[in-house]
Design a protein around this nucleic acid. Structure first.
Length: 1186
RNA sequence: GGGCUCAUAGCUCAGCUGGUUAGAGCGCCACACUGAUAAUGUGGAGGUCCCUGGUUCGAGUCCAGGUGGGCCCA
């Protein structure tokens, strides 16, 4: 009937076999087919960088994605199942450089951009494949063949459209910013990249004197003439770019006489900055120094000239200047430091960039031309000496950023980059973004606060990178006109291209190829080149909500040079569910002027030609008649594009054309819009927390720019993965768990269970320990399953009927209880999935499985191994079968392999069961099976039994030894009834003959009272304390009077201090306690006591139990099957009580041990084993019956 | 400097709108069971709920301040 299952599962083996099963059964395809017409569940996958193999932290996120996708699929929702790969940007370049052994840009250029781009593409394609395989192994279901790739031309073109829109909004700008820069790699690093790369290093810092000039704008000029500002820096090369000094107007400065003249520096730094032998002449408030002019360190260098003529060197005020190091006067070089740059902006200082990308001094650096900023520091010192500017050189140890790739020291350099302004234009982005973000449901909520904080404080978005493998920014500078031309689509690029043929020959929209396409300026006079920069990779990821639904319309068009035709696989670029798989577009047409860029034809319809592409927007040109011209079509189509809403589509039907063609045209047009309508905004996205300001942000930005709304409705974030000791995982420490190893050794499901169980707002501590712990937790479930399978195979019960149809006949309260409990679980798990509380799934299931194992199965065991197949036994089987099947469905989203493995076996008796658990419908709560009272009742029974066990332990009498009587006092009438209902269970569980419920109305009862705080608190206020005391300290008489009144539901009065207060019955909690000679185990109003007096009958029965246990042990040791029949041979001692026991219980013993024979043998009989029964030792042997 | 967040048993975590003696699982110790047995059950030990102050009849829970950890921004 069922495949036998014993022991513990080997997950890796099991999972491989399930993968094979899914593969061969085309289970995933079947699921999609099943949900074909379902309501969409819009999950938007965030692209994983296809850069390297994936790690366990990726598996974490992918587990979440898979859980919710599978759940909604079981709910019948239709999904896109589209995985995404992030394919461009510095991260890819870096890995390729590493693989090729490159040190930086020069190596790349030597290698050739074409080769480099090809290498990048190859790496991405390779690892996309690897990651797909790894993900499949995790059990993640996606349509791997249809993953999106951000390096696709379509993706790129959609970003172009967005950038053009930004330009139209007036947001696009070119500006300088100071970037960390690696001179060896000749690459700027984002802050993200330089964050963790600080190292201790010793520099030669330098104190420089800057003589104050008389010709100042201030009257003080004369006063300080001849004195010098003393400044200090650890980066001497930046002195060439000095444009100001900054000091704190709130600090006190001094004039100090030294061997090198009179210095001005802050009072607090005198001792450390000046060489011994100085003399302080007097103090000066900082504010009196502001505005003083001075001569800079290298005023004579050509690169200084222009700047100086504009802004004379002067002292500016800066509140951030401190005295902890230096001189309290800071040298300012806005071209070489981010803070300096900000200050420079504020003070209008301008800036100088003294070195090239390789840190060599620029051509107008005078004596320093060609020298290296860091290596030739001695030359700089010489220059200072020659100009009498050097006061002192001192070694200085500090923490300084280094390139994380090559470990070279970084420098900071102002470079020109492209920005999207947050606050520019008539409809600035910032407030629109914040508004859109507020519409999103953030999980946990703080993710929304974080997003809002980011949006409120973010600077302009720097979208350019001076790199190679990335989105080519479609910006073309027309310097003569002072114009930026932003290209929004390939059609537009082709239209403006100097040589469209060259454009048509482009293999892909990447460098270096794209750089060859040059534009005509508007007046046709000049040729425009693309800016060399590529885009921020977050543009690539941010556009996917649009690019994956074909927002721009036909995106895969390629223009034939003049005429002829080209076939396009249009379907591949459309959303999965579009209904036009059969349509192929081809052909070319030409319109007048520049309104018509391309005309395509539906090949199967020679009657009209149409579908026109312009600026990335699809619309129709009807050529079947001349009654329409382009302009008219435009008018109709614009609103469709603008609103992308359903209603506007109808406008299209205002066009008059051949009735026969309507359907085809409708299909073609609606696709473009339906993708957006159907799949946007996303119902759900999830990534780790840092993505709030990265991917979530870039998607939001792009969507707000294009559609003025958030592209997702619910966004879930999770925290950081740490190792199991709570340490940050790092490659150098090697404390991470390798995904491939973990999945091969322990399996995916234990990992998935671990991930799912982690609270969203907590970092996960992950390692082999936690995975094993999860595996252990799941063992309980496997045990129950194994128990069921084992006994069902013996009994072959009828399981073909659905229990739900006949549950009314299930009279055994255990069955009713576990089914009620199951309904509650279904509600809990469904709620957890709907409300996106994944950890509540595992919590709920674990608790349930505990109840199932420790109470239902344990209490039902005897029902399963009774001899005959009666109704109760069948009911037990059917109940457990149903519970396990339902449980499989509930855990299917989280641990799909385990669920499938169990389901495959359990479904055997059900002829119409779906072929996979993942094709089952999600369980619904069956209202008729709910029974909350029963659940509460059983909770009480469990507590009572637990106390009974405690009492037994107290008494020191084993459970095997029957006792005559247990006394139980229940805390409430309901609980009394519960015990009454479950009397037999309690008796059996505690192995006692009789249960007596103590009557709490009896004389022997004492009452104790407690105030019902929630009820009384509000009513009494400050008197609460006294009343509480009064209840607890009530005299026995009062307590009895009140207790009995309350029991009857009558009001009563209690004297509290001077006051007699009236109370309602439910304002007091009454507990009663039996006074008697027994010792209780008691808790929460329960009291349980055991009568431990033994008589001969009880002792005999105890011996019988002992004997049966010994026989069962012997059976097991002999390796007999559970169903084998045996003969028992035994040799009791002379004085043994056992023969007497056999007389009394022989039949029972034989029945319980499946013994056909019970034979006494002499003590010297061969191969007897000695066992202990009660206090005596006897010889025992079991043999298989013939 | 600003924002977010966390702090409860050895570990991982529950603890709903304040309410009576703060819970679970794992681990540990002890015991039991022996027809789920490389299982199972029961019990026990183990807590100043980070600190201080406030609100309140009553605070793990609410408020303020602080300490410590994490993340982000500057």
């Amino acid at each position: 009937m069922f495949q036998p299952f014993q022991g513990t599962p080997n997950y890796p083996e099991l999972e491989q076999s399930i993968l094979k099963l899914w593969d061969e059964g085309h289970t995933f395809d079947a699921l999609r087919e099943k949900n074909r017409d379902g309501e969409p569940w819009r999950f938007q996958d965030g692209p994983i960088t296809a850069n390297n193999r994936m790690g366990v932290h990726h598996a974490w996120g992918r587990t979440y994605k898979d859980i919710f996708n599978r759940y909604h699929a079981m709910r019948g929702r239709r999904l896109r199942w589209q995985n995404g790969f992030d394919c461009q940007g510095l991260w890819v370049e870096v890995e390729v450089e590493k693989a090729l052994g490159f040190k930086g840009k020069p190596d790349i250029l030597a290698f050739g951009l074409e080769n480099f781009s090809r290498a990048c593409r190859e790496r991405v394609e390779k690892f996309a494949g690897v990651i797909s395989e790894q993900s499949k192994r995790l059990g993640q279901w996606m349509d791997w063949e249809r993953s999106y790739y951000t390096f696709d031309d379509s993706n790129i073109e959609h970003i172009w459209g967005f950038l053009k829109k930004c330009h139209e909004e007036g947001w696009l700008a070119q500006d300088y910013r100071v970037m960390p820069w690696c001179p060896r790699c000749e690459t700027s690093l984002s802050q993200h990249e330089s964050a963790d790369s600080y190292k201790e290093i010793t520099h030669r810092s330098v104190y420089v004197k800057l003589p104050i000039q008389e010709n100042g704008a201030t009257e003080n000029g004369k006063r300080f003439s001849g004195d010098s500002f003393l400044v200090w820096t650890t980066t001497p090369w930046t002195l060439t770019a000095n444009v100001a000094v900054a000091l704190n107007p709130e600090l006190t400065y001094v004039r100090a006489r030294t061997d090198d003249g009179v210095m001005i520096l802050s009072k607090g730094t005198v001792a450390t900055a000046l060489k011994p032998g100085y003399e302080v002449l007097g103090e000066v408030p900082g504010r009196e120094l502001v505005g003083l002019q001075y001569s800079g360190p290298f005023d004579d260098l050509p690169l200084q000239q222009e700047s100086q003529s504009k802004t004379p060197r002067r002292a500016v005020a800066w509140e951030d200047v401190g005295e902890t190091e230096g001189t309290g006067i800071v040298h300012i070089a806005p071209g070489c430091g981010a803070e300096d740059f900000e200050l420079g902006k504020r003070e209008g200082l301008g800036f100088i960039v003294p070195v090239t990308q390789s840190a060599h001094f620029v051509t107008d650096a005078g004596f320093l031309v060609g020298k290296h900023a860091l290596d030739d520091v001695e030359t700089i010192f010489d220059g200072l000496r020659q100009r009498d500017r050097l006061y002192r050189v001192q070694k200085y140890a500090h923490s300084y950023p280094h390139c994380w790739r090559c470990s070279h020291e970084l420098i900071f350099n102002a470079v020109q980059e492209w920005f999207i302004r947050a606050d520019a234009g008539e409809r600035p982005a910032r407030q629109r973004l914040r508004k859109a973000a507020r519409e999103v449901e953030w999980i946990p909520e703080y993710a929304g606060k974080r997003m809002d904080d980011w949006l409120a404080n973010m600077g302009d978005w720097c979208i350019s990178r001076k790199r190679f493998w990335g989105l080519p920014l479609p910006f073309y500078l027309d310097e003569a006109m002072g114009e930026i031309v932003v290209i929004g689509s390939r059609a537009e690029l082709r239209e403006r291209a100097v040589d469209p043929a060259k454009f048509d020959a482009l293999p892909e929209l990447h460098r270096p190829w794209i750089d060859d396409t040059e534009l005509r300026s508007h007046d046709g006079q000049r040729t425009l080149k693309r800016v060399p920069e590529v885009g921020d990779a977050w543009l690539d990821a941010g556009i996917v909500p649009f690019s994956t639904v074909g927002y721009n319309g036909a995106t895969d068009l390629r223009m034939p040079p003049e005429s002829g035709s080209i076939d396009l696989d249009y379907q591949a670029k459309l959303p999965e569910d579009s209904r036009q798989e059969t349509l192929t577009f081809s052909g070319i047409g030409r319109g007048e002027q520049r309104t018509v860029d391309a005309v395509q034809q539906i090949t199967s319809s020679p009657l009209f030609e149409p579908l026109l592409l312009r600026e990335g927007n699809l619309f129709l040109k009807i050529s079947a008649g001349d009654d329409l011209n382009i302009g008219e079509v435009q008018e109709i189509v614009w609103p469709i594009r603008e609103a992308s809403g359903v209603d506007e589509v109808n406008l299209y039907w205002g066009l008059a054309f051949n009735q026969d063609l309507q359907d085809e045209i409708q299909v073609a047009v609606s696709t473009q819009l339906s993708g957006l309508r159907e799949w946007q905004p996303a119902d759900f996205i999830t990534e780790m927390r840092e993505q709030v300001r990265l991917w979530f942000f870039s998607m939001l930005f792009m969507s707000v720019a294009l559609e003025d709304r958030a592209p997702y409705k619910r966004a879930m974030v999770y925290e950081t993965m740490l190792d199991e000791n709570g340490e940050r995982i790092s490659k150098t420490k090697g404390n991470g768990v390798p995904y491939d190893e973990a999945v091969a050794q322990i399996g995916a499901d234990p990992m998935r269970w671990t991930f799912c169980g982690n609270p969203l707002n907590k970092d996960i501590r992950f390692g082999y320990g936690p995975i094993h712990e999860s595996a252990r937790k799941l063992i309980t479930l496997w045990n129950v399953y194994s128990f069921f399978v084992t006994y069902a195979n013996l009994d072959k019960p009828n399981l073909s009927e659905s229990i739900v149809n006949r549950h009314s006949s299930f009279v055994n309260p255990l069955d009713r209880w576990i089914l009620a409990r199951l309904q509650r679980l279904v509600g809990e798990v469904s709620g957890a999935l709907e409300n996106i509380e994944p950890s509540n799934i595992t919590r709920g299931v674990e608790k349930f499985v505990g109840d199932l194992s420790t109470w239902y199965v344990r209490r039902s065991r005897r029902r399963f191994w009774k001899g005959e197949n009666d109704n109760d036994k069948t009911a037990a089987y059917q109940t457990l079968h149903h519970v396990l099947l339902t449980l499989c469905k509930l855990i299917a989203p989280v641990i799909p392999f385990t669920a499938e493995a169990m389901y495959q076996n359990l479904k055997a008796p059900l002829p119409n069961a779906p072929q996979s658990v993942h094709l089952c419908d999600w369980p619904q709560v069956d209202e008729s099976l709910r029974d909350d009272e029963l659940i509460v009742e059983v909770e009480g029974v469990l507590q009572c039994v637990s106390l009974g066990h405690a009492a037994r332990k107290e008494s020191g009498v084993k459970v095997r030894q029957p006792l005559s009587r247990v006394l139980v006092q229940a805390p409430s009438p309901a609980m009394r009834a519960a015990i009454e209902n479950w009397r037999d269970t309690v008796l059996d569980e505690l192995n006692v003959k009789d249960l007596e419920l103590l009557d709490d109305a009896g004389e022997l009862v004492t009452y104790s009272l407690k105030a019902n705080l929630p009820k009384l608190g509000k009513k009494l206020g400050p008197k609460m304390g006294a009343v509480r005391q009064a209840f607890e300290n009530a005299s026995p008489e009062d307590a009895r009077r009140i207790g009995e009144a309350a029991k009857q539901g009558e009001a009563f009065t209690l004297q509290v201090g001077d006051e007699a207060i009236d109370f309602a019955a439910d304002e007091v909690l009454v507990q009663t306690q039996q006074q008697s000679g027994y010792s209780f185990a008691s808790e929460n109003g329960w009291a349980v006591a055991l009568d431990t007096t033994l008589n001969d009958d009880l002792i005999d029965e105890g011996l019988k139990n002992d004997f049966v246990r010994a026989v069962q042990n012997a059976r097991k040791e002999a390796g007999f099957e559970v169903s084998d029949r045996i003969a028992i041979l035994l040799a009791p001692g002379e004085e043994s009580r056992l023969p007497h026991v056999f007389e009394k219980f022989g039949d029972t013993i034989q029945a319980e041990t499946l013994a056909d024979e019970l034979r006494l043998v002499p003590a010297d009989y061969p191969e007897l084993m000695q066992v202990k029964i009660g206090d005596e030792s006897i010889g025992l042997r079991v043999e298989k019956s013939v």
